[in-house]
Write a protein that binds this DNA or RNA. Structure first.
Lengths: 216, 216
DNA sequence: TATACTTCGATTATCGATAATCGGTAAACG
DNA sequence: CGTTTACCGATTATCGATAATCGAAGTATA
């Protein structure tokens, strides 16, 4: 068995990633290289490499000689990312239909977890399991590029923000809307799952629905 | 008016990007940091930053202490990227329908250019204008995230590879298939344009078509 | 001959130091 | 006063040097 200790740079990337996503570093906040380097007992160079990586992932923005900040995501961009996310999830579900037929245990587990979180009004836990639910479907598509892109889009989405807009009381309703997706995938009906996900995301993100779909 | 000269790092990124895309650096080829630094009269640090950026863009692959290589794209991955590309272009075309109505001059110009290239059997020129054609549509969607992601996917696709598989003689046929898309967008019918693009890409990339669509 | 061990050049990973640039503040000027 | 200029501390951008690691080639051993 192989255990490869992560390089300094990878550790820094992980560190920054976590802090950006959990909101420790807030949108617009400046990330000062030497400050991070000192905090982690390293030098400036690997920190800068990490920042370049995060920059390509669109999580931070850099201006020459002015430094790097956590990217601020406008409502406009939030909506854009939801549009893209819908398209990706549709593709994912369609492809997943073939692979998941009859094997939806993991989905059921996550569904149970986020329904419990909904009852407890635990937004953070809800978010975690909801995202995991969707990730499982995308993974099942077997398309690794899709998974990789979906992940960056979901990061962009800052899911929590949308969830907070939804409000704790509607979490249960939101969660329940996921259940038919499980049924569709159990039957191997990717098309139907895709349609359900589409409506689900559109509805709860207050997007306008696409022109009415023809149903089979 | 503002003129910002590019930083060393940005110049290096541009340099590497060009050489990877035009095939000077071939898939699997090792990119040696000091070698690049010497060639460009800089030091190792900015080169490494550029490589981290390209790594996040999935153009290169890095292994600790073993260096960075141009990523090799398997046929499998090529197919994956085509699937994703179809999904993105469908979304793009649907959204573009609303914005492009009656304003398809730029599309017509590019179409004329790639049809000429097809007649001349100039694969490189064909590719350039074909991609530009699609980019115009995605841009017109008004969704910047979509554009950004589409670009990385098309890079991944290394379009040329697919085109070479198609062969010089079918370029004209391939090109002509684009023309109905222009008509659909001129009418503001994004849905139809999306469907046409879907079939177009699937057909010429030898993908299996999705289960038959319902046509209006 | 085959296998394990050693050495060594090449390259990556990281560091510490220096140069370039920014934003703000205060002096100089009208 | 209001505006411009000169400076200063903070930070980024880049460099040159060193440490860590790799892999290939050689050496020893059985």
């Amino acid at each position: 068995m192989e255990f490869k200790r992560a390089s300094t740079r990878e550790q820094i990337t992980q560190f920054l990633l976590e802090r950006i996503l959990d909101g420790t570093y807030k949108p617009g906040e400046r990330l000062i290289e030497m400050q991070i380097a000192n905090e982690l007992n390293t030098s400036q160079a690997p920190v800068r490499e990490s920042l370049r990586y995060l920059e390509a992932m669109r999580l931070v923005v850099t201006e020459p000689y002015k430094g790097t900040r956590v990217r601020e995501v406008s409502n406009r961009e939030l909506e854009e990312s939801s549009q893209v996310r819908v398209a990706l999830e549709e593709l994912g579900a369609e492809l997943a239909g073939q692979h998941m037929k009859g094997q939806v245990e993991r989905l059921e587990i996550e569904a149970r977890l986020f329904m419990k979180a909904a009852k407890d009004k635990d937004v953070r836990a809800y978010s975690q399991h909801d995202i995991e639910f969707h990730r499982i479907i995308i993974e099942a598509s077997g398309n690794q590029l899709l998974l990789s892109i979906w992940e960056t889009v979901v990061l962009e989405n800052r899911f929590l923000r949308t969830l907070n807009r939804i409000g704790k009381d509607q979490l249960t309703e939101f969660g329940e809307a996921h259940l038919p997706v499980i049924d569709a995938l159990r039957d191997g009906d990717g098309k139907k799952a895709a349609m359900l996900l589409n409506h689900l995301i559109c509805k709860f993100h207050f997007l306008k629905e696409p022109e009415s779909e023809v149903q089979k």
